[in-house]
Design a protein around this nucleic acid. Structure first.
Lengths: 110, 110
DNA sequence: TCTATTAATCGTAATATTGCAATGTATTAA
DNA sequence: TTAATACATTGCAATATTACGATTAATAGA
């Protein structure tokens, strides 16, 4: 196998898992932190900042873009990336509903 | 490869990625949702609720337990699982700091 | 003790992910 | 037009993940 049985889960469960999966690698976390820190960033700067090879960073950027969390604009021979604010907000809502489920009344197990 | 270069990232980046990774599978999302919904749940009930084989559910439970997000208590031949509220709260703080980074002042890219 | 029940563990096949060298593509500058 | 620069894409090796049948371990009840 190695193949997730997506079809037995509902849309929200799969959506949460997809968002989480993209955050499940420290390089992508680092890229996003950097984009928040300096607002916009050239791909090459991310490569030198993070310390993985250029094709590797490019691949991680692609996954973040695929989910809509970042956007990239070509500027000459460079590409400038930044957070897609609207989609980030949507993702944040979805994840927060999951993370912030009510546990106030819960006691220890069984 | 297939091997994450953990050593080039800082502790927080790795921590966020580890939490996110465990949420990166819809079965684990479903397990957690169920535990929130009914407070405590026997392993067998999760198996029939979710629709994956027992060893598969057991494996997912193990990963959640390893991160400290759930705890399990043996009751006879059954095992009752529930959310580890204290650790869940810690995780929530960490993830929220990451998700809730300030984007209010940001405009479109470059 | 013997049997049934429940869940953990083991072993393994199928698939996915990570990382990078090599290469391709597009743009700029000379 | 040519060369240089910055990225994306391709191809691939190493490793990780997912799923489950078979088995094991532990407990409860007869």
């Amino acid at each position: 196998m190695g193949l997730v049985k997506t079809e037995i889960f509902d849309e929200l469960q799969n959506e949460i898992a997809l968002y989480a999966k993209v955050f499940g690698h420290p390089a992508r976390v680092a890229i996003l932190q950097q984009l928040f820190k300096i607002d916009a960033c050239y791909c090459g700067d991310l490569v030198s900042e993070i310390g993985l090879a250029q094709p590797t960073i490019s691949q991680h950027l692609k996954e973040l873009k695929l989910l809509g969390l970042i956007q990239g604009n070509v500027e000459g021979t460079s590409v400038c990336y930044c957070i897609h604010t609207e989609n980030w907000a949507k993702m944040k809502d979805t994840m927060w509903q999951f993370l912030n489920q009510d546990i106030s009344k819960k006691e220890d197990c069984c």
